[in-house]
Each structure stands twice: as C-alpha cells, then as structure tokens.
Nucleic acid binder design. Sequence first.
DNA 1: TCTCTGACTAAAAATCTATTTTGGTCATTT
DNA 2: AAATGACCAAAATAGATTTTTAGTCAGAGA
Lengths: 197, 197
Amino acid sequence: MSIDRRAEVVQAAARSFALFGYKATTMDQVAKIARVGKGTIYTFFDNKEQLFEEIMNAFVEEIVQLAEKAVDPAKPFAENLHRALLDVLNFRREHELFTRLSLEMKEIGTAAAGFGIRMMEEALLEFVARHVEDAVAKGEIKPCDPQLTAYVLVKLFITLVVDWPSVSGRPFQEEDVMRLFELYFLDGISQKSGSPL
Amino acid sequence: MSIDRRAEVVQAAARSFALFGYKATTMDQVAKIARVGKGTIYTFFDNKEQLFEEIMNAFVEEIVQLAEKAVDPAKPFAENLHRALLDVLNFRREHELFTRLSLEMKEIGTAAAGFGIRMMEEALLEFVARHVEDAVAKGEIKPCDPQLTAYVLVKLFITLVVDWPSVSGRPFQEEDVMRLFELYFLDGISQKSGSPL
DNA sequence: TCTCTGACTAAAAATCTATTTTGGTCATTT
DNA sequence: AAATGACCAAAATAGATTTTTAGTCAGAGA
C-alpha cells in the first residue's frame, strides 16, 4: 500500500505555513518536504491558495469544535463563555499558525494571509453570535444585536489577550482575562447595584 | 509690521498635512504655500518631523481641552464620559487630519504618521485614565486598573465608531454609540439584577 | 492505463542602475 | 539680522535585467 500522498502534502504545507508564513512557503518546498513531485500537489489542489484554504479550514473547524465542546446548553452563558474562551486561548498558545499569519498580515500585506485571518475571525464571530443569540433568547443577557455583540466581544478578547500585553509588556494569566471579561463586559464597570455595605 | 512668518508656516503645513498626508507634503510646497523661502522654515523648526510634531501637539491639545471642558467634576462619570465622547466624536468628523493620518499609517507605513497617531492615542489614554482614576476614587465605578480600563474604553470606542461601521457598512448615530457604550461597558450585558417584570 | 514526476514556461518578485525628488544647508541678498 | 533660493547629499522613483516561483505537461515508471 502506497503512502497517502495527499495527507503528506497537507501536513508538509501546514508545517511550512506555520513555520514560514504564506508568502515564504514555496510549492517546491512543500513538494520537497512532502517528498512528492510538485505536479502531485496539483492533482489534489488547483493552486496554492486552495491548499492554504484547506489547511485554514481544518484549523478553523478544529477551533470551533473545541469551543463547541466547551459549551453546555444547560449552563449559564457566562460560564460557557468562560470555558470556551479558555480553550481558544490555550489553542492559540499551542498553535502558532494563527499568530504568525496575524503578523504576516500586518507587516507584509499578503492578500491570502489576510483572507485566512478574516476566515478565522468570521468563523469565530459566527460561533459567538449564535451563542449570544441563544443567551438572549433564554433571557440570560440583555436584548442586543447578536452580530454586533459578538464583534465587540471578540474585539475585547483580542484587546485583552493580544493588544494590551504588547502595549504594557506584561501578559495576563488566564484567570485575569476571565475576571476582566466579567468586569468589562458581563457586569460592567458602573458601581450602581450592590452598594458597598 | 511684517507678517508672522512662523504662523504662516504652521498654517500652511497644517493645511498640507491634512490635505495630502505627511509623506506627500514637501517642504518646498509648504514654503510656497506659506510664501516664505524654504530656509525660513528651518529657522523655526529643525526638520520636517518637528514641524509635524508641533502641529500634532496643537491638535492633541485642542482635543484634550475640548474633552476637559465637557467634564464636570460634580456630575457622574457616565454622564461626563457621554459628553466627552460626543465632543471628540464631532471633532473627529470635522477635522480630517486624524482620519487621513490613520489611513496613511495603515496603507503606507509612514513612520512619522505612526508617531502622530500614537501621540494622539497616548494623550487620549492619559486623559481617560485620569478620569477613570477619579471615578474609582469617588466610588462611581468599580475598582480597576485605570490604565487598562482607559485602554479598553478607548478601544471599545474605536470599535464602535470606526471598526464596526466599516465592517457592517452602516455607521451609528451619536445616540446609538452612547447607548451601546452603556450596554457593553458601564452596565454590562449580563441580565442579573433587574428582573424583567 | 494510470500515477507520479521534475524539467519547463510565463509571470511575478527581487535586484540593480539611472534618474528624479526632496529634506536640509549656507553663501548671498535685503 | 532676517530671509532667501541655488545647491548638495541622501532618499525615493522608474526602468531595465535577473531571479524566483506558481503552475503545466510530456514522458518515465508501475
């Protein structure tokens, strides 16, 4: 039985994309790493972008499934959000493809890298929006536009996990992020209800 | 009495920066618009960047003063935030220097434009952080890191006023921004206290 | 026959070179 | 003493040339 050349190609490409980014990954290189002829790649994928898309798709699916698994419909929104964010956080830390692509996207303006990022963000937004909608329906959170709320939520997440650490120098611990999320998003910073004894 | 050449230079440069951006503004052009010799500019400013800095400084000062005027120490934090943000919002809409520089910063990577933007953001952050500190001291909002809170607040502001409109296509009205700010930041989206009668 | 390959090609990217533009200077004028 | 614009070096731009790379295809190997 011959090896699964398609899988070899995908694995090699995934490694190369994660290691060098989209632009610096050449098809010759992928072929070499996968130990196949370059033409073989083109029997499975029409072009470089499609190969990239496949890998991003798998990546996105993995993340969404992870988040989905963290959600228990019986449990409250805040708790589900908590667990899902934690998982995404950890996943990000382990797989640096996302981080590298973000960099490439911002430093160089690679179109495909931008596409990849946008795809991930859109998938994440869709996922969050769906759960926000549920939570609103259940009366767990106030009525609001699910799309916008998801957008704000994800932006706040990125602000806390990516932007602020790079501005202030010190990254947060997981628990910090969760506590801050509750403070800034779920409960609000306004000191109005529970008067301090 | 001779004209104030320095003021002429500053005015000409301000116009040109706002109209063409940092990079596309040449010192020859500024000299011509200001109707002075190019050398004259260099009797007031060491170089192009310093000229730019002066103009940005004035700009930032104007904004901060505007915001400061909107704040009444006797009034609650939420209301002050409300008014200050409204003023900044309007100012932004009127003066396009900020917008143009943001674009230049993102499309081309002009270092000086980046510097200008960062300056504005830092000034704004400092302003907000100071007032957050006050509000915490007065017990109007929950105890929190003023720096971080200011950062989150400004980011949310930009998310609502700049990012979301460009994503969704439809910009917000002023009142919308304010209402959303209350929902997402001050009160929180969590449906916990006031049960919906 | 069918899968797989790597030399090949056209197009894009990088490199090099010639030319122009531009920030900054300074001897001269006012 | 204040102001100027011709001047210069350095940087940006444009164009020509070379290199790299995505994608093809005739043919080798099974």
